[in-house]
Nucleic acid binder design. Structure first.
Lengths: 263, 263
DNA sequence: TCTTATTTGTTCGTATGTATT
DNA sequence: GAATACATACGAACAAATAAG
């Protein structure tokens, strides 16, 4: 419990709801390896029978575990224990180590550490800028931007959606519009053409997954995602890239480091 | 929708479940101000009657909105539309501006910007260190640590729980053990006694609220919190403080800034 | 390809318990 | 104490997705 809560009113703990008790049971069973990663939980009717509760209670218990990201449901098949460990993302180091400073490199390194294979898939297009992106990039509403969307997998598991927006004015016709941006990634290519980023800002929000994200990341619509917006600026404070990153919240730990003197 | 999803299999959109449709309806009504912040939604039986659905559907719809942090339930009273805007927390600036570098100062400034009053409440105790904290502080398991727990409110709304752990060996008997740590807060006091922090690491996780957190932050146990662990180190890399911060996830935006050169 | 069984998703109806007003 | 509100539970039924044949 810990100190400092003394003065808070705590009502007598009402007997824990059955579906919570069952969720606790199943959680322990998963953690002790009774249901190993990738295996199926007993079906809801079977849980109901085994623990002498209604199917509704069994269902609600599974809903709790899904919310925690402990299991995932394949409809028509069953409830699967998730296989991946928590992934760590260090935003500062990603940008600092220039020679592998592209997202792919940092991502690969992180997964290699865990014995997993990184796979990613890039799509490039040119589109009119959405309002918020246009605003940040300081271009006129509707002006064209280069869009790089990258989907990333850890092994066979989809884990990240990243959408990068660059002003077409500076990116069109450069290696930034190519699938492979070469060593150092897009930040090195931006530097090549005189727009090397000098500072970064990330803002982090937690929200429910949108339908499409939920399907692609294989999570419930009720599941939360981390929505990170990274903004890269030149030394003159010109914004040269906006990057929207979406991660399944249960699957990631975000790490930020800085030193005291820094402003 | 956006580019890059083309190759993903998207099943025909099954008709949206009634409880989701109702949740969409209520969400719009809240956003357009039909149910202003602080007001009560119609009761579940009334929603059921008005929209010709079962009470179960009305209940599930409210569950969705609760998960999003849009409403909060006062049991026995009704469902309340939340009052607070999203709060922004800039971790780097908090530590950088030394003269108001204590959490209280930064927190107050942020709330003042929104026209809200900050209130906080500190409890100090000395306890044996939990295993993970002892490990980080590099002290023996069970050694005593100074614990500063701060509960913070924005106006009347509880918004943050922060628990700071300091080695008793360096903190006991110093101003660090006082309720008011004076100008600059604990980091200035650490500097005074030769343990000024020089670098910080924050790691961010999203998880369901524990029961006690849920009660105190007035969220559901199913609701997610941001669990931030900040570690402060001296120039010699000695860890001098571990700070566990818990925030209701829907209520906060985390901001981190850094420059490209930095390691 | 079609059929059937299995599994989860959703809805309705009903009932009871607990907290607040 | 009574009325109202949400929380939980049981039972039944049908829909949708998947797997096995």
């Amino acid at each position: 419990v810990g100190p400092g809560f003394e003065e808070v009113h705590v009502p007598i703990e009402t007997p824990r709801a059955k579906y919570r008790q069952l969720a606790d049971l199943l959680r322990s069973a998963i953690e002790t390896g009774e249901y190993p990663p990738g295996s199926l939980l007993p079906s809801e009717p079977e849980l109901a029978q085994r623990y002498e509760v209604s199917r509704d209670v069994a269902h609600q218990a599974v809903v709790v575990l899904r919310g925690e990201g402990l299991v995932r449901v394949d409809r028509g098949r069953g409830t699967v224990v998730r296989e991946l460990p928590v992934l760590r993302r260090n935003a500062v180091i990603r940008q600092a180590t220039r020679d592998q400073g592209n997202a792919r490199g940092a991502f690969q390194a992180e997964l290699a550490r865990l014995g997993l294979e990184a796979r990613s898939d890039v799509t490039i297009s040119e589109l009119p800028a959405p309002a918020d992106v246009a605003n940040l990039l300081d271009i006129s509403l509707g002006a064209t931007v280069l869009v790089r969307r990258r989907l990333m997998w850890a092994g066979e598991v989809p884990v990240q959606i990243a959408t990068s927006w660059l002003p077409a004015e500076i990116a069109a016709g450069t290696p930034l519009a190519e699938l492979d941006t070469g060593p150092g990634g897009i930040y090195s290519r931006l530097a090549d053409i005189g727009y090397g980023p000098s500072s970064f800002t990330e803002s982090v929000r937690v929200r429910p997954a949108e339908d499409q994200e939920a399907r692609w990341l294989r999570v419930d619509p009720e599941q939360r995602v981390l929505a990170i917006q990274r903004i890269a600026r030149t030394a003159e404070s010109r914004c040269v890239e906006v990057n929207d990153i979406v991660l399944a919240a249960h699957q990631w730990e975000l790490v930020y480091e800085w030193s005291a003197g820094q402003q």
